[in-house]
Amino acid sequence: MTASRNAQEAVSHRRHLMARNTGTLLERRYAMLGVMLIAPTVVVFCAVIVYPLLSAIYLSFFSIFTPTLQGDFVGLNNYAELLSTGTFWSSLGTTLIWTVGTLSLQILFGVGMALVLHQNMWFRSLARSLILFPYFISTVVAVLVWKWLFNDLYGIMNHFLISLGIISFPMDYLGTMPNAMISVILVGAWKYFPFVVIAVLARLQTIPDQLYEAAKIDGAGPIARFFDVTLPQLRDVLVVIILLRAIWDFKEFDLIFLLTGGGPLNDTQTLPLLVYQEAFALNDMGNASAYAVMMMLIMLVFMLVYIRRTRSEEET
């Protein structure tokens, strides 16, 4: 009896071990499959993100002539120079003015338009699709049209303002300050506010009607309902929008480059334009890389806030 019981136990023990072995084997095979599946992405990611990033950091320690890519190791000289001369700081200031200015207008127009489009209007679906138009249009096309509108000789803006009697002689929208900065900020706001509209509208549609009804019964008027129901509900989505758009606006290149090219003088020269100028106009790749790395560090702060924000949202 005892012998047979022992034999049985031994068999069951062996089965148990086998089950565990096949389990780990299966798990290992799944892990292998996982690695194989993400491998192409990792390779592409390394080629187009990690390599350029590392080489930019590497280049920033050299003084390099762009056409030949030849130069000498200068250590942290590029950084010391950019921090001590005014170009970087004034360009950073311009970038901040542009980012804060255009972002504020985007949020203001975007939230306002989303609230309008959330109302029951008979042309709502049409308006909702039309509002996306500036966001989808190519930047080059948009800038060409705006340059035409802004033209000081034959532009419709001057024609309008003069015929309305607001100004008495044509204005130079892109050639003087602060007009150039205001124009760039306005065109930026026009181009990118639809993104805010889409995101805010999507959130507005998920706010339960009963919250508004409860607020009505509790005695809240339309303004109180906006501040006590709508805005708190929009808060999370607005934080994400502001962070994302801040990152995107901070690195905006084509719109400003095409509209003013950084002028008049260097008054609308944001950091991305400065990097471009250093690299391809002044042919100093090392210095340009140092500017680019500094820009990346500043954006890293936004990135970290964004990541922390989205992570804490997932947790709640």
Partner: peptide, 29 residues
């Protein structure tokens, strides 16, 4: 308007203001 009728309503979904604490919810009206 609902606020002028001197009524109070309890909703099926409760319709509590999610960003307010219990005390703030009760105090809101």
């Amino acid at each position: 308007a609902p606020g002028q009728r001197d009524i109070a309503m309890v909703f099926q979904s409760y319709a509590l203001y999610p960003h307010m604490s219990v005390a703030q919810n009760i105090a809101y009206p």
